[in-house]
Structures are given as C-alpha cells and as structure tokens.
Amino acid sequence: MNSPMIYALLGITLFSVGLYGLIVREHLLRKILALNIMGSGIFLMLVALGKRSAGELPDPVPHAMVITGIVVAVSATALALTLMLKLVEASGSAVLHDAPKDRS
C-alpha cells in the first residue's frame, strides 16, 4: 500500500469518526466540531486519491475543489455557531431535545 492510499483511508476514517461524534454527542458545539472533522476527512480522501497520477504533479482539480470546500465549511460553521448562541439565549439549552412537543 502506498502513502496516498494510507491518507485516503485516513480520510474515510475521519469521516466516520466525525459521523459517530455527530450522532452520539449531544452538545451542539460538539456536533459542529464533528461536521468539520467529517469535512476534513472528505477533503483528505479527495486530494490523496488525486496523487495516483502517473505524472510528476498531483491532480490540481481536487485541490481547487477542496479550497472551495474549506471556504464553504468555514461559512457553514460560522452560521451554525451563531445559530447555536441564539438558540441557547432563547431556550437555555445547547442540546436539541427530542421530546415530542409536536402534539401539544
């Protein structure tokens, strides 16, 4: 196994660890961290597999996609954090409760 493949496998492992955290951890800040780790994992896989080319240089297209992705991720993170703060102000809790209030 060559080193790009090792990093690609690290990428999907990070994706899964983030997914695990997103599901298991309840605090919204932790969920936001989890989404960021998932994103990093995808970016890593995308770029690492681009190093399989026979030529000298790695494939630049995934690099550009990842830079796009990093900017999208920081935008979404900033929005999520502000939303979290507002939610805590309004409801006093940084955890989404699943109590079925729908029928009240």
């Binding site: 997103l22 989404l35 939610l87």
Partner: peptide, 14 residues
Amino acid sequence: ALDGAMRYLMATLL
C-alpha cells in the same frame, strides 16, 4: 424557529 432552523442546518450539512 431557531430550534427548527438548527435541526434543518444539521440535516442539510450532513
């Protein structure tokens, strides 16, 4: 609304 938006954000990002 904030609660709904937060759920929506989490779902849409995932």
